[in-house]
């Protein structure tokens, strides 16, 4: 019996200590900070206030939340738009090809994401490869503004986060029973109604899984907004980063973070309602 306890102790202690010290404690601390005041130079005054929470509902910040959500939603939508047909078309291939293709989707993500973002600068800028090619082919006269705007950010986010959509969507699409689709086809259903009546309902939790894994990082990846957005558009990630590193207002930054956590938990609840499992979120 004693040995049994020792084994239990060894297994559980590290993970419990970890969960408390590196997850619970930091979050409780920023919750605490979000109710503090800041002095002008980055110091924290331990005096209870709700003002940080009022501040984030100021029109200035609400606008940033809306813009950031719009950018993240557009990226999520684009990811869905690519992943669905991609997965459905791959469904016809043999299992071996399918597995290979999914592995190939992952390979680019083993290289540094900043370097890949830099690759997009080379492609998208005014004198970049895409513009030069279009001008040389006489398709356009003047270079298009493909980056240093919201479009650049959306392209960057979609690119960086696409595999997080392709993986859950394709695995859901591959799981659909072929006989179901054939039965519908025999009954005279066209591709559109098969998609609407069978594929969508069968894959909705996979799509929502992917959407969570795309949308949530997309409101926080400040480096993509910096590099491809030209520093013009602030997304929530930049806002939090600025509060911690430039505006020296940690309490406000903490309040925004707490707000984000609440939004995230709300989205996860919806996901669970749709029949999604929490364990599937981390599985790549």
């Amino acid at each position: 019996m004693k040995k049994n306890n020792l084994f239990k102790f060894i297994c559980l202690t590290p993970v419990i200590v970890y969960a408390i010290l590196l997850i619970l404690l930091p979050l409780v601390y920023i919750l605490f900070l979000s109710f503090c005041e800041s002095d002008s130079y980055g110091g924290i005054i331990y005096h209870f206030t709700l003002s940080n929470y009022f501040t984030i509902f100021d029109i200035t910040y609400v606008k940033i939340f809306l813009k950031s959500s719009l950018i993240a939603l557009s990226s999520t939508f684009l990811c869905i738009l690519i992943s669905y047909p991609f997965s459905i078309f791959l469904r016809d291939k043999s299992e071996k090809t399918r597995n290979l293709m999914i592995k190939l989707v992952m390979v680019p993500f083993l290289t540094n994401s900043l370097i890949r973002t830099y690759g997009w600068i080379v492609l998208l800028r005014k004198t970049g490869i895409i513009n030069s090619a279009l001008i040389n082919l006489n398709i356009i006269d003047h270079p298009l503004n493909l980056m240093y705007n919201n479009l650049g950010i959306v392209i960057g986010m979609t690119y960086t986060l696409l595999p997080f959509m392709i993986l859950p969507v394709s695995s859901a699409v591959f799981k659909i029973d072929q006989s179901l689709i054939e039965a519908a086809r025999d009954l005279g259903a066209g591709p559109i109604s098969i998609f609407r009546k069978i594929i969508v309902p069968e894959t909705i939790s996979g799509v929502f899984n992917g959407s969570l894994m795309v949308f949530i990082p997309a409101i926080g990846y400040f480096f993509i907004a910096d590099i491809l957005g030209g520093g013009k558009a602030m997304i929530i990630g930049n806002l939090i980063k600025n509060q911690f590193l430039t505006a020296r207002n940690w309490p406000l930054g903490s309040a925004i973070s707490i707000f984000l956590i609440i939004v995230t938990f709300g989205l996860v609840q919806i996901y669970k309602k749709l029949g999604g499992k929490l364990d599937d979120l981390g599985g790549m």
Binding site: P26, I216, G220, S257, T264, L281
Partner: peptide
């Protein structure tokens, strides 16, 4: 797994 990385980053920095 679910919260934005930046939130984890700043809360770890704070602690």
């Amino acid at each position: 797994i679910v919260i934005p990385e930046i939130v984890l980053g700043i809360s770890l920095l704070s602690i």
